[in-house]
């Protein structure tokens, strides 16, 4: 279980996250929705260690993550697909996937997981020798997800996976997210595309300028008047 308690994150004098608490239980898909600048990515970066929180605690199965050096966090079973994919453009698809397994030592299991990633994303198998920078946006998103899965995470953080993709590709990506979850990986999803996110989420939190204002099941939030008005286009 991932548990965030009274988390505060600042950029210099500006407090971007003003004390939020939420949790993600094992096996769930939880989504964090909110407008641009609400603090979604900041929250994700704090969880994966790219930003040091000013206060509060982040625990994964009881281990305090804020006390760990950032590069140790993936080894605890938490992987992040960052906003904008951030694949290593000048390395091949295969090399990107190998980097995903960087923190692991179990060679045979890595081979098996690589095969699983190629089953999930056949497109990556076709393009395994290609430089990641030459892939299309959708393929890069798949690569970023495959790369994160190569760490064999128990919880996967996805930051805006639908950004910049065609509606057809968005459907494919969300379908795969559900598939990954069905195979036993917990998901924390950040999305501006609130309809899609609420549709697959067990539970959801609404983040507004650094505060969590609403939390409920995905289904109920989909019908919530406030959410409808603000995020679902009325």
């Amino acid at each position: 279980m991932l548990k965030i308690t009274d988390l505060k994150v600042s950029y210099g004098m500006i407090e971007a996250i003003k004390g939020i608490s939420f949790e993600v239980n094992d096996g769930e898909i939880v989504t964090l929705i909110g407008a641009n600048g609400a603090g979604k990515t900041t929250t994700m970066h704090a969880i994966s260690g790219l930003l040091k929180p000013k206060a509060g605690s982040i625990t994964l199965n009881g281990t305090e993550l804020t006390k760990l050096p950032p590069h140790k966090i993936v080894g605890m079973g938490l992987a992040q697909v960052p906003e904008g994919r951030r694949v290593f453009a000048q390395q091949t698809v295969e090399e990107n996937l190998a980097l995903g397994a960087y923190s692991r030592k179990d060679k045979d299991a890595i081979e098996a997981d690589l095969a699983d990633v190629f089953t999930l994303f056949p497109r990556l198998l076709e393009r395994r020798k290609q430089m990641a920078g030459t892939l299309s946006g959708g393929e890069q998103q798949m690569l970023a997800m495959g790369r994160a899965l190569m760490a064999k995470p128990s919880i996967l953080l996805l930051d805006e996976p639908s950004m910049g993709l065609s509606p057809l590709l968005v459907s494919e990506i969300f379908h795969i997210i559900v598939e990954i979850n069905r195979k036993g990986t917990t998901i924390l999803l950040v999305e501006q595309n609130a309809i899609r996110a609420l549709d697959i989420a067990n539970r959801a939190y609404v983040l507004e300028t650094g505060h969590i204002t609403i939390s409920d099941t995905g289904e109920k939030l989909m019908k919530d008047e406030r959410v409808k008005e603000a995020y679902l286009g009325g």
């Binding site: 994966s48 260690g49 790219l50 050096p69 950032p70 590069h71 140790k72 966090i73 993936v74 080894g75 992987a79 992040q80 960052p82 951030r86 694949v87 290593f88 453009a89 000048q90 390395q91 980097l99 995903g100 960087y102 923190s103 790369r147 994160a148 760490a151």
Partner: peptide, 16 residues
């Protein structure tokens, strides 16, 4: 090589 491209993403891979 990963670090030379993107240090943040490298950290996410578990690279020190």
């Amino acid at each position: 090589r990963a670090c030379s491209e993107d240090k943040g993403a490298s950290t996410l891979m578990g690279i020190n």
